[in-house]
Design a protein around this nucleic acid. Structure first.
Lengths: 247, 247
DNA sequence: CGTAATGTTGACTTCAGTCAAAGGATGTGG
DNA sequence: CCACATCCTTTGACTGAAGTCAACATTACG
């Protein structure tokens, strides 16, 4: 163990930190972004692979509920998940959408603090939480990776607080569309998929579906966007949309 | 170096993980909660102490601005800081208030993504960011501590998103007051200090000062709280306030 | 196709925002 | 020690952006 630890430590010192892309862990389960070059070399990957299992989710199916015992952590390999919190009377706030390569379930609490549900057909790679946590002790670069992820999620959460606390409906939707387009590296004029429903968009932006719908129509009327169908949009005037997003 | 690394690794395995309270690092700089038992033993503390310097801030003084190069990380030792984001037209969203023991400045970006300003007279302990980051490689338990902090901040951010996106003014203020009282372990009937201005509370809750003021008056009229002066409040009916917070 | 689910539009309401004035606290200098 | 100025907070009257309720349109799907 000590020798291994020592070797590992040396690996870490040599490891370039940026992600190295997709790695195959189990048959149908690629963990894009999770594996960090160097720290999880070919000989060490089996550690992760051995404890991993694949899970498929249909649209609308729940991965876990807020309050469930947090027994597993996951990486998303295909599809899209929404994370949300519910109030007793049914009011809902979606705190984020997860895409392939994203990690979820890390909570320094014994229970999940939000619910996770599939938006489209989705595949996740599941790791038993305790085993995964023990792995962090052995591969500090994996922990460093998670810390980096947590930091960027935190920065995104702060942006979302500004949006929810201070932006108008128009600014919220424009900001959202810009962010989605960015994530797809969409060129101007290209149709960007919008897999979530208007209800999901409303619950993410702190609005009602009616306001979201009206605001879509307004942005379309102003020729800032086009809506080929309800699950795609096109940025027609990226400068105008950026203006509308309000910075 | 290898021997040291190896010893350190063993330390980590033995280290109990919970925080061990306040530790003195430099003359006037206690880093409550930052040092993790075991990983930063007496012989290793000088590593941190050597790079630390103390900085005092008067109320309203800025520690750093959003966009500044992120050269340092900090722990808060006395006082209270607010973190906020600004829009071009002056709209402001406060994303959090920091208390002694809290850590700030960790960003996997080269610049700070928010501004930090003192609410009251405040002392921080400053560490050069690069040096501090190198320390993480040597003391994985310190990194684990930071990951835990990031996780709980993320959970708090999600709660705040629910508040900003879905709660009424009354629910927002009630939630805020409950949280402040909780942080002070205040018994019912005890006066809880409220060091920040109405403007700060408004910018934290996504409201205007007028709405905050009116809502304070309403909660007071309903005998849920009392307001001995503008910088203290008392929870008169904790069940009623909890009800008002809307869960 | 026909039915259900999802999305859009319209009319009206409401909660919180804006504008304005007055009340209180704090501090300074005569 | 008080007069005055400034800042922060509170309260009131009115406005407006987004919510609610309702009807209609469109899409998805068996």
């Amino acid at each position: 163990l000590e020798i291994e630890t020592q070797l590992m430590s040396i690996d870490v010192k040599m490891a370039p930190l940026p992600y190295c892309g997709t790695r195959v862990l189990c048959d149908e389960c690629t963990v894009r972004g999770l594996a960090v070059c160097g720290s999880l070399s070919d000989t060490e990957l089996p550690d992760l692979a051995a404890m991993a299992s694949t899970k498929r989710l249909e649209p609308g199916q729940t991965l876990f509920h807020e309050g469930d015992t947090a027994q597993d952590v996951y990486t998303l390999t295909h599809g899209i998940l929404k994370l949300y919190k519910l109030m007793g009377d049914g009011r809902r706030q979606i705190t984020g959408f997860l895409l392939p390569g994203d990690f979820l379930g890390l909570a320094y609490s014994q229970v999940y603090v939000y619910s996770a549900e599939a938006v489209a057909q989705t595949t996740v790679c599941r790791f038993p939480r305790r085993q995964f946590m023990r792995l962090l002790d052995r591969y500090p670069a994996l922990e460093k990776d998670l810390l980096g992820r947590a930091s960027s999620e935190l920065a995104a959460a702060q942006d979302q607080m500004l949006l929810l606390g201070r932006k108008t409906a128009r600014e919220r939707l424009a900001t959202f569309l810009e962010k989605v387009a960015m994530r797809h590296d969409a060129r101007p004029g290209q149709a960007v998929p919008l897999p979530m429903s208007r209800t999901d968009i409303a619950d993410y932006l702190g609005l009602t579906i009616e306001t979201v719908s009206r605001t879509f129509s307004a942005l379309k009327a102003e020729r800032l966007i086009a809506l080929p169908d309800k699950s795609h949009f096109v940025i027609v005037a990226s400068d105008g949309l950026n203006e509308a997003a309000g910075e």
